[in-house]
């Protein structure tokens, strides 16, 4: 059986990993004033953060068009027995809805299953990678879908932000709006819960926030996979990753992934966070 896996760039899936696992990544659009870029394809993370910090326009994002996704499904469908398309939470992006409509409109012979990961960034990638591994082992559509669904339930993603400004500006603040306008300066921490941004906690300083992330990760118990994600502070991410390796099976190390332009638009510089796949009980 040949099952193809599709995701979007809001999964922050590194290109090399996607290529090696045969995962198709649909880019979302990042818009700086009059200029539009395809996330990760036409705009690198380095260029993006430079523009985000110093540029005159504040970026916005938009979902890929139905037509773009239809084209991908039709291309993959030519030699596949099924397509599993796993996307960033439908409560955070229109991409899932676009994929559903594209699945209904694409002229392909094989079935297309669109899955709402209810996650963001590497929280999405947890399901995508698990599904791709099962698919590459020759499993059928049902097995790939059930793998994806079970990882969706066990995926967690939480981050420390330098400021809520970007989340608020992009309209993704969700329940974390409780963190706005505090009397004392805080470093907000958020978690994706039931597909939405929710409050995880607040720290007084960035370093206390990183410590809080570590404690939160430990609170989720043993993990099958851990990704430490960051936008601009690579060293902080590497240090956090080292402190979390005990939660993984012997010999396995946390993966470090860069938050790309699509997600970075809504998180801003200096985010650091953790995505993990809790071990099945």
């Amino acid at each position: 059986m040949t099952i193809k896996i599709v995701t979007d760039s809001a999964s922050d899936m590194p290109v090399e990993l996607a290529d090696s696992l045969g995962i198709e990544v649909v880019p979302v659009n990042v818009i700086f004033g009059p200029e539009q870029f395809k996330d990760g394809v036409e705009l690198s993370a380095d260029d993006f953060y430079e523009r985000l910090i110093d540029g005159e326009h504040h970026p916005t994002t938009s979902a890929p068009s139905i037509g773009e996704v239809v084209q991908i499904y039709e291309k993959l469908g030519q030699d596949a027995d099924g397509i599993v398309s796993i996307h960033v939470s439908s409560k955070l992006s229109a991409t899932y809805g676009v994929a559903e409509q594209a699945a209904a409109q694409a002229s392909v012979d094989c079935p297309i299953k669109v899955i709402d990961s209810l996650q963001a960034s590497q929280g999405v990638a947890m399901s995508v990678i698990a599904a791709a591994k099962v698919a590459n082992s020759g499993a059928g559509l049902d097995a790939v879908v059930s793998t994806a669904m079970s990882t969706v339930e066990r995926s967690q993603c939480f981050v420390l932000l330098d400021t809520l400004e970007f989340l608020q500006r992009g309209g993704r603040i969700g329940k974390a709006r409780a963190l706005i306008g505090t009397l004392l300066r805080i470093k907000p921490m958020i978690i994706v819960r039931e597909g939405e941004v929710d409050t995880l906690g607040k720290a007084r300083t960035y370093s206390k926030g990183v410590e809080f992330l570590k404690n939160t990760a430990e609170g989720f118990g043993d993990a099958d996979e851990i990704s430490v994600i960051y936008s601009t502070e690579k060293e902080v991410a590497e240090q956090l990753a080292r402190s979390l390796s005990d939660l993984l099976p012997e010999g396995k190390e946390p993966f470090i992934a860069r938050i790309g332009p699509g997600v970075g638009t809504h998180g801003g510089p200096r985010i650091v966070g953790v995505a993990l796949l809790q071990s099945a009980v």
Partner: peptide, 17 residues
């Protein structure tokens, strides 16, 4: 008009594009 937090970003820009 997007002053309240809904995840649809900038409606004017999106409709124009």
């Amino acid at each position: 008009l997007n002053v309240f937090p809904v995840p649809d970003g900038d409606t004017g820009t999106n409709m124009f594009l």
